[in-house]
Design a protein around this nucleic acid. Structure first.
Lengths: 217, 217
DNA sequence: GCTAAGATATTGTTCAACAATTCTCAATAG
DNA sequence: CTATTGAGAATTGTTGAACAATATCTTAGC
Protein backbone atom coordinates (compact mmCIF):
# COMPACT_ATOMS: atom_id res chain seq x y z
CA UNK A 1 0.00 0.00 0.00
CA UNK A 2 1.87 3.06 -1.23
CA UNK A 3 -0.61 5.70 -0.11
CA UNK A 4 -3.09 5.47 2.72
CA UNK A 5 -6.76 5.88 1.96
CA UNK A 6 -6.78 9.15 3.87
CA UNK A 7 -3.96 10.48 1.69
CA UNK A 8 -5.77 9.57 -1.51
CA UNK A 9 -8.91 11.25 -0.24
CA UNK A 10 -6.90 14.34 0.66
CA UNK A 11 -5.46 14.39 -2.87
CA UNK A 12 -8.92 14.29 -4.40
CA UNK A 13 -10.15 17.10 -2.17
CA UNK A 14 -7.03 19.18 -2.85
CA UNK A 15 -7.61 18.86 -6.58
CA UNK A 16 -11.24 19.84 -6.23
CA UNK A 17 -10.37 22.87 -4.12
CA UNK A 18 -7.56 24.09 -6.36
CA UNK A 19 -9.61 23.30 -9.43
CA UNK A 20 -12.43 25.47 -8.20
CA UNK A 21 -14.91 22.64 -7.73
CA UNK A 22 -15.08 23.50 -4.05
CA UNK A 23 -15.00 27.31 -3.77
CA UNK A 24 -13.75 29.06 -0.61
CA UNK A 25 -16.28 29.02 2.20
CA UNK A 26 -17.84 25.71 1.17
CA UNK A 27 -18.61 23.42 4.05
CA UNK A 28 -17.29 19.91 3.62
CA UNK A 29 -19.97 17.64 4.97
CA UNK A 30 -18.55 14.47 6.47
CA UNK A 31 -21.51 12.30 5.62
CA UNK A 32 -22.03 13.50 2.05
CA UNK A 33 -18.34 13.39 1.15
CA UNK A 34 -17.88 10.05 2.86
CA UNK A 35 -20.69 8.53 0.85
CA UNK A 36 -19.44 10.19 -2.32
CA UNK A 37 -15.89 8.92 -1.92
CA UNK A 38 -16.82 5.60 -0.35
CA UNK A 39 -14.83 5.97 2.88
CA UNK A 40 -15.80 6.07 6.51
CA UNK A 41 -16.21 9.33 8.34
CA UNK A 42 -13.13 8.63 10.42
CA UNK A 43 -10.95 8.20 7.37
CA UNK A 44 -12.39 11.37 5.91
CA UNK A 45 -11.56 13.24 9.08
CA UNK A 46 -8.00 11.97 8.84
CA UNK A 47 -7.85 13.42 5.32
CA UNK A 48 -9.21 16.71 6.67
CA UNK A 49 -6.34 16.85 9.14
CA UNK A 50 -3.84 16.69 6.30
CA UNK A 51 -5.56 19.55 4.52
CA UNK A 52 -5.84 21.56 7.73
CA UNK A 53 -2.09 21.26 8.11
CA UNK A 54 -1.70 22.71 4.61
CA UNK A 55 -4.15 25.43 5.69
CA UNK A 56 -6.29 24.67 2.65
CA UNK A 57 -9.27 24.18 4.94
CA UNK A 58 -10.15 25.37 8.42
CA UNK A 59 -11.83 23.47 11.22
CA UNK A 60 -14.47 24.98 13.48
CA UNK A 61 -15.40 22.97 16.56
CA UNK A 62 -18.74 21.23 16.23
CA UNK A 63 -19.33 22.96 12.91
CA UNK A 64 -17.14 21.04 10.53
CA UNK A 65 -14.43 21.99 8.08
CA UNK A 66 -14.70 24.72 5.46
CA UNK A 67 -12.64 25.59 2.43
CA UNK A 68 -10.35 28.37 3.59
CA UNK A 69 -11.39 31.95 2.78
CA UNK A 70 -8.40 34.28 2.45
CA UNK A 71 -9.70 37.78 3.05
CA UNK A 72 -7.94 41.14 2.50
CA UNK A 73 -6.81 41.24 6.14
CA UNK A 74 -5.11 37.86 5.63
CA UNK A 75 -3.38 39.03 2.48
CA UNK A 76 -2.19 42.18 4.22
CA UNK A 77 -0.82 40.14 7.09
CA UNK A 78 0.83 37.65 4.76
CA UNK A 79 2.66 40.52 3.08
CA UNK A 80 3.78 41.87 6.43
CA UNK A 81 5.40 38.53 7.25
CA UNK A 82 6.85 38.25 3.76
CA UNK A 83 8.41 41.69 4.15
CA UNK A 84 10.00 40.61 7.44
CA UNK A 85 11.34 37.32 6.08
CA UNK A 86 12.45 38.50 2.65
CA UNK A 87 14.15 41.61 4.04
CA UNK A 88 15.93 39.41 6.56
CA UNK A 89 17.10 37.30 3.64
CA UNK A 90 18.41 40.32 1.77
CA UNK A 91 20.29 41.50 4.85
CA UNK A 92 21.80 38.02 5.20
CA UNK A 93 22.76 37.91 1.52
CA UNK A 94 26.32 39.07 2.19
CA UNK A 95 27.03 36.05 4.34
CA UNK A 96 24.99 33.58 2.31
CA UNK A 97 26.63 30.75 0.39
CA UNK A 98 27.02 30.83 -3.37
CA UNK A 99 24.28 28.25 -4.10
CA UNK A 100 21.71 30.28 -2.20
CA UNK A 101 22.64 33.47 -4.05
CA UNK A 102 22.63 31.64 -7.38
CA UNK A 103 19.10 30.39 -6.74
CA UNK A 104 17.85 33.97 -6.70
CA UNK A 105 19.27 34.77 -10.11
CA UNK A 106 18.17 31.41 -11.48
CA UNK A 107 14.56 32.07 -10.54
CA UNK A 108 14.64 35.41 -12.37
CA UNK A 109 16.13 33.73 -15.44
CA UNK A 110 13.40 31.11 -15.46
CA UNK A 111 10.67 33.69 -15.06
CA UNK A 112 11.96 35.70 -18.02
CA UNK A 113 12.26 32.59 -20.15
CA UNK A 114 8.68 31.61 -19.30
CA UNK A 115 7.44 35.12 -20.08
CA UNK A 116 9.15 35.03 -23.47
CA UNK A 117 7.27 31.80 -24.17
CA UNK A 118 3.97 33.25 -22.94
CA UNK A 119 3.65 30.62 -20.21
CA UNK A 120 2.08 32.81 -17.51
CA UNK A 121 1.42 29.89 -15.23
CA UNK A 122 5.15 29.22 -15.11
CA UNK A 123 5.91 32.93 -14.75
CA UNK A 124 3.80 32.88 -11.62
CA UNK A 125 5.54 29.92 -10.05
CA UNK A 126 9.00 31.24 -10.98
CA UNK A 127 8.06 34.53 -9.32
CA UNK A 128 7.10 32.66 -6.15
CA UNK A 129 10.37 30.73 -6.35
CA UNK A 130 12.24 34.05 -6.62
CA UNK A 131 10.73 35.35 -3.41
CA UNK A 132 11.23 32.01 -1.72
CA UNK A 133 14.91 32.20 -2.74
CA UNK A 134 15.19 35.67 -1.20
CA UNK A 135 13.89 34.43 2.14
CA UNK A 136 16.10 31.34 1.84
CA UNK A 137 19.21 33.55 1.94
CA UNK A 138 18.83 33.44 5.73
CA UNK A 139 19.71 29.71 5.51
CA UNK A 140 17.02 28.90 8.06
CA UNK A 141 14.88 25.76 7.76
CA UNK A 142 12.12 27.38 9.81
CA UNK A 143 12.01 30.42 7.56
CA UNK A 144 11.85 28.15 4.51
CA UNK A 145 8.84 26.21 5.74
CA UNK A 146 7.16 29.41 6.90
CA UNK A 147 7.55 30.85 3.40
CA UNK A 148 6.12 27.70 1.85
CA UNK A 149 3.03 27.98 3.99
CA UNK A 150 2.61 31.67 3.21
CA UNK A 151 2.86 30.95 -0.51
CA UNK A 152 0.23 28.21 -0.23
CA UNK A 153 -2.12 30.65 1.46
CA UNK A 154 -1.40 33.24 -1.18
CA UNK A 155 -2.28 30.82 -3.96
CA UNK A 156 -5.75 30.56 -2.45
CA UNK A 157 -6.07 34.33 -2.61
CA UNK A 158 -4.96 34.39 -6.25
CA UNK A 159 -7.74 31.94 -6.85
CA UNK A 160 -10.28 34.58 -5.89
CA UNK A 161 -8.71 37.09 -8.29
CA UNK A 162 -10.26 37.81 -11.68
CA UNK A 163 -7.07 37.72 -13.75
CA UNK A 164 -4.30 36.11 -11.76
CA UNK A 165 -2.33 34.86 -14.76
CA UNK A 166 -0.90 38.25 -15.76
CA UNK A 167 -0.46 39.53 -12.23
CA UNK A 168 3.23 38.68 -12.01
CA UNK A 169 4.26 40.09 -15.36
CA UNK A 170 4.85 43.75 -14.41
CA UNK A 171 7.12 42.61 -11.59
CA UNK A 172 9.57 40.72 -13.81
CA UNK A 173 11.70 43.79 -14.46
CA UNK A 174 11.79 44.63 -10.79
CA UNK A 175 12.82 41.06 -9.94
CA UNK A 176 15.75 41.45 -12.32
CA UNK A 177 16.71 44.80 -10.84
CA UNK A 178 16.56 43.34 -7.35
CA UNK A 179 18.76 40.40 -8.34
CA UNK A 180 21.30 42.84 -9.83
CA UNK A 181 21.41 44.91 -6.65
CA UNK A 182 22.15 41.76 -4.68
CA UNK A 183 24.87 40.67 -7.07
CA UNK A 184 26.45 44.10 -6.74
CA UNK A 185 26.32 43.98 -2.96
CA UNK A 186 23.91 46.91 -2.75
CA UNK A 187 22.03 45.34 0.14
CA UNK A 188 20.65 48.56 1.60
CA UNK A 189 19.15 49.70 -1.69
CA UNK A 190 17.90 46.18 -2.38
CA UNK A 191 16.03 46.16 0.90
CA UNK A 192 14.31 49.48 0.38
CA UNK A 193 13.41 48.57 -3.20
CA UNK A 194 12.02 45.25 -1.96
CA UNK A 195 9.90 47.03 0.63
CA UNK A 196 8.19 49.31 -1.89
CA UNK A 197 7.93 46.36 -4.30
CA UNK A 198 5.96 44.28 -1.81
CA UNK A 199 3.85 47.28 -0.93
CA UNK A 200 2.93 47.81 -4.58
CA UNK A 201 2.12 44.14 -5.06
CA UNK A 202 -0.11 44.14 -2.00
CA UNK A 203 -2.04 47.16 -3.24
CA UNK A 204 -2.56 45.48 -6.60
CA UNK A 205 -3.93 42.33 -5.03
CA UNK A 206 -6.19 44.20 -2.63
CA UNK A 207 -7.53 46.22 -5.54
CA UNK A 208 -8.29 43.07 -7.52
CA UNK A 209 -9.99 41.47 -4.53
CA UNK A 210 -12.14 44.57 -3.98
CA UNK A 211 -13.11 44.46 -7.64
CA UNK A 212 -14.18 40.85 -7.28
CA UNK A 213 -16.03 41.72 -4.10
CA UNK A 214 -18.02 44.31 -6.04
CA UNK A 215 -19.13 41.70 -8.57
CA UNK A 216 -20.65 39.48 -5.90
CA UNK A 217 -22.46 42.33 -4.12
CA UNK B 1 -17.76 22.04 27.16
CA UNK B 2 -15.88 24.89 25.52
CA UNK B 3 -12.89 22.84 24.42
CA UNK B 4 -12.81 19.51 22.68
CA UNK B 5 -11.48 16.51 24.56
CA UNK B 6 -8.46 16.34 22.30
CA UNK B 7 -7.67 19.96 23.08
CA UNK B 8 -7.89 19.40 26.82
CA UNK B 9 -5.64 16.36 26.54
CA UNK B 10 -3.17 18.42 24.54
CA UNK B 11 -3.24 21.08 27.26
CA UNK B 12 -2.44 18.50 29.94
CA UNK B 13 0.44 17.07 27.93
CA UNK B 14 1.76 20.55 27.15
CA UNK B 15 1.82 21.38 30.84
CA UNK B 16 3.60 18.15 31.69
CA UNK B 17 6.19 18.72 28.99
CA UNK B 18 6.87 22.34 29.91
CA UNK B 19 6.77 21.49 33.60
CA UNK B 20 9.48 18.90 33.13
CA UNK B 21 7.31 15.91 33.98
CA UNK B 22 7.95 14.57 30.50
CA UNK B 23 11.58 15.32 29.66
CA UNK B 24 12.78 15.65 26.05
CA UNK B 25 13.22 12.33 24.33
CA UNK B 26 10.46 10.59 26.29
CA UNK B 27 8.26 8.33 24.24
CA UNK B 28 4.53 8.95 24.67
CA UNK B 29 2.90 5.55 24.65
CA UNK B 30 -0.60 5.60 23.24
CA UNK B 31 -1.91 2.82 25.43
CA UNK B 32 -0.36 3.99 28.71
CA UNK B 33 -1.31 7.65 28.25
CA UNK B 34 -4.77 6.77 27.02
CA UNK B 35 -5.40 4.69 30.13
CA UNK B 36 -3.87 7.38 32.33
CA UNK B 37 -5.96 10.22 30.92
CA UNK B 38 -9.08 8.19 30.31
CA UNK B 39 -9.39 8.84 26.61
CA UNK B 40 -9.42 6.59 23.58
CA UNK B 41 -6.35 6.07 21.42
CA UNK B 42 -8.08 7.92 18.61
CA UNK B 43 -8.60 11.04 20.67
CA UNK B 44 -5.09 10.84 22.05
CA UNK B 45 -3.70 10.73 18.54
CA UNK B 46 -5.72 13.80 17.72
CA UNK B 47 -4.12 15.56 20.71
CA UNK B 48 -0.71 14.43 19.47
CA UNK B 49 -1.39 16.09 16.13
CA UNK B 50 -2.03 19.39 17.88
CA UNK B 51 1.26 19.14 19.76
CA UNK B 52 3.09 18.07 16.62
CA UNK B 53 1.79 21.23 14.97
CA UNK B 54 3.30 23.21 17.84
CA UNK B 55 6.48 21.16 17.37
CA UNK B 56 6.49 20.26 21.05
CA UNK B 57 6.62 16.60 20.07
CA UNK B 58 7.84 14.77 17.00
CA UNK B 59 6.32 11.80 15.25
CA UNK B 60 8.36 8.91 13.96
CA UNK B 61 6.53 6.50 11.66
CA UNK B 62 5.59 3.24 13.35
CA UNK B 63 7.56 4.23 16.42
CA UNK B 64 5.27 6.72 18.11
CA UNK B 65 5.63 10.30 19.28
CA UNK B 66 8.47 11.62 21.41
CA UNK B 67 8.96 14.79 23.38
CA UNK B 68 10.95 17.05 21.15
CA UNK B 69 14.70 17.24 21.69
CA UNK B 70 15.96 20.72 20.79
CA UNK B 71 19.57 20.48 19.69
CA UNK B 72 22.10 23.30 19.15
CA UNK B 73 21.25 23.54 15.45
CA UNK B 74 17.61 24.11 16.39
CA UNK B 75 18.51 26.81 18.88
CA UNK B 76 20.67 28.54 16.31
CA UNK B 77 17.85 28.46 13.79
CA UNK B 78 15.33 29.71 16.33
CA UNK B 79 17.55 32.71 17.01
CA UNK B 80 17.84 33.40 13.30
CA UNK B 81 14.07 33.60 13.03
CA UNK B 82 13.82 35.64 16.21
CA UNK B 83 16.33 38.13 14.82
CA UNK B 84 14.24 38.46 11.66
CA UNK B 85 10.94 38.93 13.50
CA UNK B 86 12.15 41.12 16.34
CA UNK B 87 14.16 43.37 14.04
CA UNK B 88 11.10 43.69 11.83
CA UNK B 89 9.18 44.76 14.93
CA UNK B 90 11.78 47.38 15.84
CA UNK B 91 11.68 48.77 12.32
CA UNK B 92 7.88 48.94 12.54
CA UNK B 93 8.02 50.63 15.94
CA UNK B 94 7.68 54.12 14.47
CA UNK B 95 4.31 53.27 12.97
CA UNK B 96 3.10 51.08 15.81
CA UNK B 97 0.21 52.09 18.04
CA UNK B 98 0.74 53.35 21.57
CA UNK B 99 -0.52 50.16 23.30
CA UNK B 100 1.99 48.02 21.43
CA UNK B 101 4.86 50.34 22.34
CA UNK B 102 3.71 50.50 25.95
CA UNK B 103 3.74 46.71 26.18
CA UNK B 104 7.49 46.73 25.52
CA UNK B 105 8.23 49.07 28.39
CA UNK B 106 5.76 47.28 30.65
CA UNK B 107 7.56 43.96 30.15
CA UNK B 108 10.87 45.55 31.16
CA UNK B 109 9.26 47.07 34.26
CA UNK B 110 7.85 43.71 35.30
CA UNK B 111 11.16 41.95 34.75
CA UNK B 112 12.99 44.46 36.96
CA UNK B 113 10.36 44.20 39.65
CA UNK B 114 10.64 40.41 39.62
CA UNK B 115 14.44 40.59 39.77
CA UNK B 116 14.22 42.90 42.80
CA UNK B 117 12.08 40.27 44.48
CA UNK B 118 14.39 37.43 43.48
CA UNK B 119 11.69 35.66 41.50
CA UNK B 120 13.84 34.33 38.66
CA UNK B 121 11.05 32.26 37.21
CA UNK B 122 9.05 35.44 36.67
CA UNK B 123 12.14 37.28 35.39
CA UNK B 124 12.38 34.62 32.71
CA UNK B 125 8.80 34.91 31.59
CA UNK B 126 8.89 38.70 31.65
CA UNK B 127 12.00 38.54 29.46
CA UNK B 128 10.16 36.34 26.97
CA UNK B 129 7.21 38.75 27.09
CA UNK B 130 9.60 41.60 26.33
CA UNK B 131 10.85 39.91 23.17
CA UNK B 132 7.35 38.89 22.23
CA UNK B 133 6.33 42.55 22.58
CA UNK B 134 9.17 43.59 20.27
CA UNK B 135 7.97 41.25 17.55
CA UNK B 136 4.38 42.30 18.19
CA UNK B 137 5.24 45.86 17.08
CA UNK B 138 4.68 44.59 13.54
CA UNK B 139 0.99 44.23 14.46
CA UNK B 140 0.81 40.92 12.61
CA UNK B 141 -1.22 37.99 13.97
CA UNK B 142 0.94 35.52 12.08
CA UNK B 143 4.13 36.96 13.53
CA UNK B 144 2.59 36.78 17.01
CA UNK B 145 1.74 33.11 16.75
CA UNK B 146 5.11 32.37 15.16
CA UNK B 147 6.84 34.01 18.13
CA UNK B 148 4.72 32.02 20.56
CA UNK B 149 5.79 28.82 18.89
CA UNK B 150 9.46 29.81 18.90
CA UNK B 151 9.28 30.66 22.58
CA UNK B 152 7.69 27.30 23.34
CA UNK B 153 10.52 25.54 21.52
CA UNK B 154 13.04 27.65 23.37
CA UNK B 155 11.56 26.71 26.72
CA UNK B 156 12.32 23.09 25.80
CA UNK B 157 15.94 24.04 25.23
CA UNK B 158 16.12 25.89 28.56
CA UNK B 159 14.94 22.66 30.14
CA UNK B 160 18.15 20.99 29.08
CA UNK B 161 20.24 23.78 30.58
CA UNK B 162 21.94 23.36 33.97
CA UNK B 163 21.05 26.76 35.43
CA UNK B 164 18.27 28.32 33.42
CA UNK B 165 16.89 30.40 36.26
CA UNK B 166 19.66 33.01 36.24
CA UNK B 167 20.13 33.02 32.49
CA UNK B 168 17.99 36.07 31.86
CA UNK B 169 19.41 38.25 34.62
CA UNK B 170 22.42 39.77 32.79
CA UNK B 171 20.11 40.84 29.97
CA UNK B 172 17.83 42.95 32.13
CA UNK B 173 19.94 46.06 31.74
CA UNK B 174 20.11 45.59 27.98
CA UNK B 175 16.35 45.17 27.82
CA UNK B 176 15.98 48.54 29.57
CA UNK B 177 18.50 50.17 27.23
CA UNK B 178 16.66 48.75 24.23
CA UNK B 179 13.31 50.03 25.49
CA UNK B 180 14.85 53.51 25.97
CA UNK B 181 16.23 53.56 22.45
CA UNK B 182 12.75 52.74 21.14
CA UNK B 183 11.11 55.44 23.25
CA UNK B 184 13.65 57.93 21.90
CA UNK B 185 12.99 56.91 18.32
CA UNK B 186 16.53 55.61 17.83
CA UNK B 187 15.33 52.72 15.71
CA UNK B 188 18.54 52.16 13.80
CA UNK B 189 20.65 51.91 16.93
CA UNK B 190 18.00 49.78 18.59
CA UNK B 191 18.14 47.31 15.74
CA UNK B 192 21.91 46.93 15.75
CA UNK B 193 21.95 46.63 19.56
CA UNK B 194 19.23 43.98 19.33
CA UNK B 195 21.24 42.03 16.77
CA UNK B 196 24.34 41.80 18.95
CA UNK B 197 22.11 41.14 21.98
CA UNK B 198 20.54 38.09 20.36
CA UNK B 199 23.94 36.92 19.17
CA UNK B 200 25.33 37.08 22.71
CA UNK B 201 22.33 35.25 24.12
CA UNK B 202 22.68 32.51 21.54
CA UNK B 203 26.35 32.00 22.37
CA UNK B 204 25.51 31.75 26.06
CA UNK B 205 22.86 29.10 25.48
CA UNK B 206 25.04 27.08 23.13
CA UNK B 207 27.83 27.17 25.70
CA UNK B 208 25.49 25.92 28.43
CA UNK B 209 24.19 23.15 26.18
CA UNK B 210 27.71 22.01 25.33
CA UNK B 211 28.50 21.94 29.04
CA UNK B 212 25.48 19.74 29.71
CA UNK B 213 26.44 17.57 26.76
CA UNK B 214 29.80 16.97 28.41
CA UNK B 215 28.13 15.80 31.63
CA UNK B 216 26.15 13.09 29.89
CA UNK B 217 29.06 11.80 27.83
C1' DG C 1 29.70 -12.78 21.26
C1' DC C 2 26.99 -12.61 17.07
C1' DT C 3 23.24 -13.62 13.81
C1' DA C 4 18.74 -15.05 12.46
C1' DA C 5 14.10 -16.61 13.18
C1' DG C 6 10.15 -16.37 15.70
C1' DA C 7 7.26 -14.27 19.43
C1' DT C 8 5.53 -10.12 21.45
C1' DA C 9 4.32 -5.41 21.76
C1' DT C 10 3.25 -1.11 19.56
C1' DT C 11 1.60 1.79 16.12
C1' DG C 12 -1.36 2.53 11.65
C1' DT C 13 -5.87 2.24 9.52
C1' DT C 14 -10.55 1.57 9.17
C1' DC C 15 -15.16 0.95 10.83
C1' DA C 16 -19.74 1.43 13.19
C1' DA C 17 -22.23 2.87 17.21
C1' DC C 18 -23.26 6.24 20.68
C1' DA C 19 -22.83 11.04 22.89
C1' DA C 20 -22.75 15.92 22.49
C1' DT C 21 -23.50 19.99 19.98
C1' DT C 22 -25.38 22.92 16.55
C1' DC C 23 -28.89 24.06 13.34
C1' DT C 24 -33.81 24.32 11.63
C1' DC C 25 -38.08 25.96 11.98
C1' DA C 26 -42.48 26.40 13.69
C1' DA C 27 -45.08 28.21 17.63
C1' DT C 28 -45.57 31.93 20.75
C1' DA C 29 -45.24 36.38 23.09
C1' DG C 30 -44.41 41.18 22.82
C1' DC D 1 -43.80 42.15 12.25
C1' DT D 2 -39.82 40.94 15.07
C1' DA D 3 -37.68 38.44 18.56
C1' DT D 4 -37.50 34.37 21.46
C1' DT D 5 -37.79 29.75 22.75
C1' DG D 6 -37.85 24.96 22.53
C1' DA D 7 -38.45 20.42 20.42
C1' DG D 8 -36.69 17.70 16.84
C1' DA D 9 -33.44 16.90 13.02
C1' DA D 10 -28.97 17.06 11.27
C1' DT D 11 -24.12 17.06 12.06
C1' DT D 12 -19.96 16.62 14.40
C1' DG D 13 -17.22 14.57 18.56
C1' DT D 14 -15.69 10.46 20.88
C1' DT D 15 -15.16 5.83 21.79
C1' DG D 16 -13.81 0.97 21.47
C1' DA D 17 -12.79 -2.67 18.65
C1' DA D 18 -10.76 -5.30 15.01
C1' DC D 19 -7.16 -6.17 11.92
C1' DA D 20 -2.75 -4.93 9.39
C1' DA D 21 1.87 -3.35 9.34
C1' DT D 22 6.02 -2.41 11.70
C1' DA D 23 9.30 -2.43 15.36
C1' DT D 24 11.31 -4.55 19.40
C1' DC D 25 12.51 -8.31 22.27
C1' DT D 26 13.64 -13.31 23.00
C1' DT D 27 15.77 -17.26 22.04
C1' DA D 28 18.11 -20.84 19.51
C1' DG D 29 22.00 -21.92 16.89
C1' DC D 30 26.54 -21.08 15.41
Amino acid sequence: MALSTAQRVADVLRDRIEGGGLPPGTRLSEEALGRDLGVSRNTLREAFRLLIHESLVVHRLNRGVFVRVVDPADVTDIYRVRAALECAGVRAAAGAGRPLRAAVTAAVDEAERAAAGGDWQEVGSADLRFHRALAALSASPRIDTAMDRLMAELRLAFHAMPSAHRFHEPFLARNRALARLLEDGEYGRAESELTTYLDDALKLILGALREREGENA
